[in-house]
């Protein structure tokens, strides 16, 4: 237990350093960027005096280092900044949209794990068979397919074509919160889930397959066979047990990255999540929001990595936290 506390303390310090680094980079990019929030807010016709007054109100006329320091101070308290264009704090913007992205990622993750690991196992148990070649081929197809293309394709087939024949199972766009109507929530998410799941599952299929094939060549799998253990049990309790480790790493990274926003899928399906917020704040040059989202995304990735490291300890007794 002491191990875990010490590990977390060390990782926390390291994470803060990384986040500080990221914050500094985005902060200075904000100032180098040829964009003047005060002028945007004041409007095209505003006098120079008005712009200056706004700038003063926002504290943008203070020396750079003073602003940097107050920015860091706010960030350290979990305040991601204020979106002048939306007249709201970035945190409340994020809060509004986090539910959508979390729903999308969690549901998609369940599907891609099942499909990916399942297909990988199928290929690994019958290497070079027809099934193996077929799953590898399909995996490669989805792996190399651009997300928007698959998304549009699913929309075309499962929404538009079905709609034409009078079947409206899957809505083409929009989001209904889980708490409002669980069925509509799921129906609205099916196509986006499939989109991220099919593309991501390809990686998991290949990873699971190669990892399992490696493990199958291990001496201890021969031992299990020599013990007279049944094939399914060898596959799950012996092979998969060892082969799952790289899959877990990949899973942590993927989920962590996607929680920061699933840009393309959210936009294709009109889901008001973090990914859409990213796109809209970039097009509107809403820099505080961009900075806040970048910091948040970095934090997700860092936290995901810490969780993966802790999970490792439970997966492999030989691994020490340090």
């Amino acid at each position: 237990m002491g191990d875990i506390v010490r590990f977390l303390a060390r990782r926390l310090i390291f994470s803060i350093v990384v986040l500080w680094f990221v914050a500094t980079i985005v902060f200075f990019m904000y100032f180098v960027a040829p964009n003047d929030v005060a002028r945007t807010l004041a409007g095209r016709q505003a006098s120079a005096a008005t712009v200056a007054a706004i700038r003063h109100n926002l504290g943008l006329d203070r020396p750079l280092l003073v602003q940097y320091w107050s920015f860091l101070g706010r960030a350290a308290h979990g305040n991601l900044g204020f979106s002048y264009l939306n007249s709201r704090s970035v945190l409340s913007l994020v809060g509004q949209r986090a539910g959508v992205t979390v729903s999308l990622v969690v549901g998609g993750a369940v599907i891609w794990l099942v499909i990916g690991v399942g297909a990988g196992m199928l290929g690994a148990t019958r290497p070079r068979s027809v099934i193996d070649r077929a799953t590898t081929g399909i995996a490669l197809l989805f792996y190399s397919m651009p997300t928007f293309l698959l998304g549009e394709f699913l929309l075309l087939v499962l929404f538009f074509r079905l709609h034409l024949i009078g079947v409206d199972w899957f809505p083409g766009a929009g989001y209904v919160p889980l708490a409002t109507d669980p069925l509509q929530w799921a129906l609205h998410l099916v196509l986006p889930w499939l989109t991220i799941a099919l593309i991501t599952a390809a990686t998991y299929a290949r990873l699971t397959r190669s990892s399992m094939l490696d493990v199958m060549g291990e001496d201890y799998i021969r031992t299990a066979r020599a013990k007279g253990i049944s094939r399914p049990r060898i596959l799950f309790r012996h092979v998969l047990r060892s082969a799952i480790t790289p899959v877990v790493t990949q899973f942590g990274i993927d989920v962590g990255t996607m929680l920061g926003g699933v840009v393309v899928t959210e936009n294709v399906f009109g889901l008001p999540g973090m990914g859409q917020l990213i796109v809209s704040s970039i097009t509107r040059q809403d820099l505080p929001t961009i900075i806040g989202l970048v910091l948040l995304a970095s934090a997700f990735v860092i936290v995901a990595n810490i969780i993966v490291d802790i999970v490792y300890v439970f997966l492999d007794p030989r691994v020490r936290l340090n």
């Binding site: 291990e218 001496d219 201890y220 021969r222 031992t223 012996h238 047990r241 060892s242 997966l315 030989r318």
Partner: peptide, 14 residues
Amino acid sequence: VVFQDPLTSLHPLH
């Protein structure tokens, strides 16, 4: 059967 290398012949995670 008892195999040659007991380190690699036992499952490391069980």
